[in-house]
Amino acid sequence: METSCCCSCSEQKISCSCSIFQTDSHITTANRIDHLLARWGYKRSGHTVRPGLYRLGNPDADSPVFASANYTISFDILRSNLKGFDAYILVLDTKGINVWCAAGKGTFGTDELVKKIESTGLSHIVSHRKIIVPQLGAPGISAHEVKRRSGFTVEYGPVRAADIPEYMKTGKATSEMRQVFFPIQDRLVLIPIELVHVAIPTIIISIILWFLAGPLAAFAAITAVITGTVLFPIFLPYLPTHDFSMKGFILGGLSAVPFSAMYAQSSDLPEWALAAGAIVPLLIIPAVVAYLGLNFTGSTPYTSRTGVKKEIFKYVPIMAAMTGIGTIIGISLCIFRLAGVI
C-alpha cells in the first residue's frame, strides 16, 4: 500500500519530503483484522497510517484532493469509498485518532493542514487550489485561515464518506449529507470498547461478591455492567427522557427487578432481612447502569459539554448515595449472617 515514489519538486522553494505514497480502494483481510482489533481496543494508538500525500488510482494535476486522519479506519473508509476515482489523499498526523475526535482536540486542525499542504509540496502537484475536508473535521479547521495561510480553499465534504460519490457528481452536499445520525450500526461497533473498559474491575468485583454474598450477587454485578455497556447503547434512542443518567436509572431499574425478586424469595431468613436484601439490587444496579450510561455521552455525536456537566452535578450525587446506602445494607446483612444474628 505504501510504495513510495519520487515527485518532481525541483521548482519548489520550500523543502518537501519528495515522496508520495500509492494507495488503492481495496480493503484487504489484514485491514479488516486491524479494524477489528481497533474496535476491541487492542493497542488503541497503534492503528496508524503514515501521514503525507497519497495517490489513489492515477491522479493528475486536476484531480481532487481529500484530507483525512492517520487513523486506519478513517483512511480506509475514505479510500474504499473513492473506488473508481483518481484522487489525492492528504493524510494529516492526528496521532492515530479519527477525524472528529482529532478535530475536537485540534490535531486535525488548521496548523497541521497548512503544514501538510506545504511539506508535501501540494501546490506543485495539483494545478487547482481546492482541498476537500470531511465536514466532521470542521471543529478543528478554520477554512478562511487555511485560505489565508496556504492559498487553498477548503471545501467541506459530506459527513459520511459513503456520500462522496454522489457529492462529487452533484458538487453539493445535501442537508441530509450534512447531518450526523447515530444509527444502530454506529452504536453497536462501540460496544466492544465499552466492555473492554470495564472488564477487569467487573471480574474482580464479581469474584469478591461471589465469596461475600454468593453467586446471585456476582451474577447481579455482571448483569449491571452488561446492561450499562451493551443494552444501554442498543436501546439508547428508545429509553424515555433525554438525560443519559435518567435513561440509565430506568434501564437499570428494570434489570434489577428479577434480582430483587429472587432474593426476596430465597432463603429462610427473617422477613426484615429479606426485605432489606431485596432493596440492595434496586439501589445499586440502577446507579451503576446510570453511571455507565452517563459515561456513554462521550461516545455519542450529540451531547454538549454544558448539558453533560449539568447531568454530572444533577445525578452523580444520587448515584453515589444509592450505591453507598445499598452497600451499607449489603455489608450489614453479611455481618449479621456471619455473626449468626440471622
Binding site: 479547521i141 478562511h144 455521552t297 462521550g298 455525536p301 451531547t303 454544558t306 453533560v308
Partner: peptide, 27 residues
C-alpha cells in the same frame, strides 16, 4: 453539541460557543 465548528469557520466572529467535548468520563 458545542463542537465549535461554526464559530471557528465564521469569518466575521458572529458566533460564539464554549466548545468542548461533551464527555462525562473525561470531566
Amino acid at each position: 453539541m458545542e463542537c465549535g465548528a461554526c464559530a471557528l469557520n465564521c469569518p466575521v466572529q458572529a458566533i460564539e460557543v464554549e466548545s468542548g467535548v461533551g464527555c462525562a468520563w473525561a470531566m
